[in-house]
Amino acid sequence: MKPEKETMSTSELISKITELEEQIGRLKKQAESDLSKLEEEQNRADEAVNDLKVIQQQLLQQEKLASLGQLTAGIAHEIKNPLNFVNNFSELSMDFIQEIEEELDKLSDSPEKENILELLSDVKSNLLKIKHHGSRADGIVKSMLMHSRGGTGAMDLTDLNDLIREYVNLAFHGMRANKNPINVELRLELDESLPKITLNAEDFSRVILNLSKNAFDAMRDKIAAKGNSYKSILAVETRDFGDKVLIVVEDNGPGVPDEIRDKLLMPFFTTKKGTEGTGLGLSITHEIIKTHEGTLEIESELDQYTRFKITLPKTTT
């Protein structure tokens, strides 16, 4: 018997060809979809590699910051002792000058005595300056040590709303009592149904103080630039987010330019002039939030607002 193949009629051949064509079409479609899937996978792999690179860089940055932290803690400790001498000796010398002046009072007046008193008063004011700047340096050293201390304090169940009320208020009155006070409207929108959460109240109060103080400083600059038509507002909000709580600290100050937003959390970065800022406030704030396993985000629009969004887990491990 001859093979079937050879006996196929023309019509049979045509139907076979169409069938084959259909099959090729299906395979082509399949190949195309496979290809697009492959491309998709490729894209995802590329993204993952990019993410990894970013994370790698962040880790590197964190590593650098961690070693910087250790370094600053070491330096701070070493500076503390000589600084104590500067402060103690200047204070002592001021006391002595006071005593000398009292002794001089007992002597009869003369041009020489007058001259001595004048010189002494100059020396005294110089000592006051030494003491003043020594104390300033001491304050910086203390915040540097605080910075590197990290998460040793006790974590207790705390009423976050109470803490915010207390420390926003404290920051406000501190600002009012210091030089260049400004008028600020405080808006507290606190979610009263918020449960107590575990946090280190001492450390976290610094977060609220720092953010409030920053807001006041920023708004002071805007007042200086815009005059009285601008009304400064500090709004602090809390919200229940399931297993997290959200804290928003927002001011309607000058905002943060894009190019410096990334630098805000870096230690020693400051936009404040001269001796006004140590550049440690926000970096400490970030550090404290991290030890609470929370996150800090900064949103801002120039001339409109700066918004610090903190999320905290309700229970920290």
Partner: peptide
């Protein structure tokens, strides 16, 4: 071990 502590105490 800080020598200046002596001066400081004597003056205080």
């Amino acid at each position: 071990d800080e020598q200046d502590v002596e001066t400081l105490f004597l003056q205080k």
